[in-house]
Design a binder for these strands. Structure first.
Length: 209
DNA sequence: CTTCGGATTGGCT
DNA sequence: GCCAATCCGAAGA
């Protein structure tokens, strides 16, 4: 078993983003099958946290393919990106939504009273279900082969390793503008799986009016 | 040092 | 559709 980050998931975030759909992310006892992602690049992307170059917060975005960039959104939500760009350059894919495919009991406990399809719907909710914190930023995904559902593979809530299983089957991809983004909102860099119930509702940024 | 706004969410009008 | 919650870090003074 090789755990190196795949070459085909390296490079331009806009190209890599749709290929991450159908992949599975695992952390702290929960596995999420990705149904919605968004691409963010570096200096050329005014909506990206890396737009103005490296800082203490966004350092992980420059750390190379397979690293995680976790940021705190609105003081409340932890959102995760998978970095795709070579070290020293910035590009990443925001994990926006997915379906919980293992660790359902844990996921429900982390989001009480929420119907299963909505457990990981939206970047903040996905981060919550995975138990992400700011301490996780800058760490690296270990790549494994699907299927990843057995508990022996995903571990329990104490297991803070980051696993990623690339998509097994081909999925029908849709594309449109990024959610909640004011700057460069015309770029269709959000990708999702057609007709999937876990995909988040589109919301235009207040500043994009 | 202080100010300010956000790659969001859920609840309410 | 509107708005508050809640905190970090980037930027400006």
């Amino acid at each position: 078993m090789s755990d190196a980050w795949p070459l085909e998931l390296t490079g331009d975030a806009v190209s890599v983003a749709p290929r991450l759909l159908g992949g599975v992310v695992v952390h702290r006892g929960v596995a999420v099958w990705l149904s919605e992602v968004e691409a963010y690049t570096g200096a050329d992307d005014p909506a990206s946290h890396a737009h103005r170059g490296p800082t203490a917060r966004n350092a992980a975005m420059f750390a190379g393919p397979g690293h995680v960039y976790v940021y705190l959104s609105y003081g409340i939500h932890h959102a995760a990106n998978i970095v795709t760009a070579p070290p020293g350059t910035a590009a990443g894919v925001l994990l926006r939504a997915g379906e919980v495919v293992a660790g359902l009991d844990l996921a429900r406990r982390r989001r009480p009273g929420v119907v299963d399809a909505r457990l990981a719907s939206g970047p903040g909710n996905l981060g919550r279900v995975l138990g992400l914190t700011l301490d996780t930023t800058g760490r690296r995904f270990r790549v494994i082969a699907a299927p990843v559902t057995p508990v022996a593979i995903i571990g329990d809530e104490r297991d803070d390793s980051l696993l990623f299983a690339p998509a097994g089957a081909t999925v029908a991809v849709r594309q449109g503008p990024r959610v909640g983004v004011g700057a460069a909102h015309e770029r269709p860099w959000r990708f999702w799986i057609a007709d999937d119930p876990t995909v988040s509702r589109y919301r235009r940024a207040a500043s994009a009016r």
